[in-house]
Each structure stands twice: as C-alpha cells, then as structure tokens.
Computed example of a mutant assay.
Amino acid sequence: MDRRYEKSINRYWEKMEARCREAFKKLDPNEWFDLWHTHPDWDGKGSSRPENRPRCDELTYRMLKLAESITEHRGNDVQCFALVKEDTMENSIYIHSDNPNGSEFPFQYEGVIWGYSKSRLGQVVDPESHEVGLFEGDTERTLFIRKKP
C-alpha cells in the first residue's frame, strides 16, 4: 500500500470510528432498543480494496464491544450483536431489548449456525468471550458475532 493511500485510509477509519462513538454517545443505555444499529463503514471503503477488509472487521468488533460495555449494567435485558457482510457498508452493530413496538425479544438468530470457525474473523474475534455464527441466505452469507452465552 502506498503511503498516500495509507494515510488517507487511516484518516477514513478514524472518521468512521468517531462517527460510531458519536452515535453511541447519543444513546440512553437505560431506554429500550428496537434493533437499534449503526454502521462502522458508511462509505463502503472496506470493500474497495482487499487490504481494507481486516480494518473494517476490527472496527466492527471493537464497536460491538463498546455497545456491550455501554449496556452491560442491564445484564440479559439487552442483546448486542454484530453483522459482518461481504459488502462492508452493510456491516452493523445492533442493540436490542424488549420494546413497545412488539419486535421479538430476545432476538432468536433463526438459521444462524454458531461456532463457525472458517471465517476471516478468526483473526479478530476473541474466542474466549465471543462466538461467530454463519447465516446462509439465498443470495449472500452473513456472519454474526455475539458474546458467548
């Protein structure tokens, strides 16, 4: 990677992290959440070059852990999980709780096969604290990350 591009992409990831942190700051961790989420790669640069993807995966996982730390005082009243997609613009971190909108809580992860170890996330996700799951849809695969139960 040339130095100019490296400086540019580093600034981009710093901007994306700041944007996520700002979204979390606006939350009241004691309120209800109806699949509230944010995206760590709003402009999709993680998909633009193969060397960008690991940085996006790392940021997604780091922001999941931030969501967990913000809501940990609520125990099992809140679920936090992340989705990792081929198009990194669709990566997302979710916070979910019982809510007046009637959305299913707890979220059931239907069709997700947990303990998936063949993903690139093995270099990012701490297997002692979190697990990776695979959901295979008709057109794409989605990786889930959640804290181990």
Score class of each variant (00 low, 15 high):
D138I: 06
L35G: 12
E140F: 01
W32D: 14
Y116I: 05
P29V: 13
P40S: 04
K15L: 07
Y12C: 03
N101M: 09
Y94Q: 07
R21M: 03
W42Q: 10
L64E: 06
K148M: 08
M63Q: 08
V84Y: 08
V132G: 00
H37N: 09
E22W: 04
G111H: 00
D41V: 02
V125K: 01
R19Q: 05
H96W: 02
D41P: 10
F24G: 00
V132Y: 00
H37R: 07
S69M: 08
F105W: 03
G111R: 01
Q79V: 01
H37Y: 04
R11W: 05
K85V: 07
K85S: 07
Y109W: 12
R55D: 06
R62E: 09
E14T: 09
D34G: 10
E131Y: 00
K147G: 12
R3L: 11
T71I: 04
P40Q: 01
D43K: 14
H37M: 13
H73W: 13
G137M: 00
A18R: 12
H39W: 10
N91E: 07
H130E: 03
V84W: 05
F33T: 06
L27I: 03
T139F: 08
M1G: 14
L35K: 14
G115W: 08
Y12S: 00
P29T: 13
Y109H: 10
R19A: 02
Y109G: 06
S69I: 01
A82I: 01
S117I: 08
K65G: 06
N99Q: 02
E104K: 04
V124W: 02
K15R: 10
V112T: 00
P40M: 03
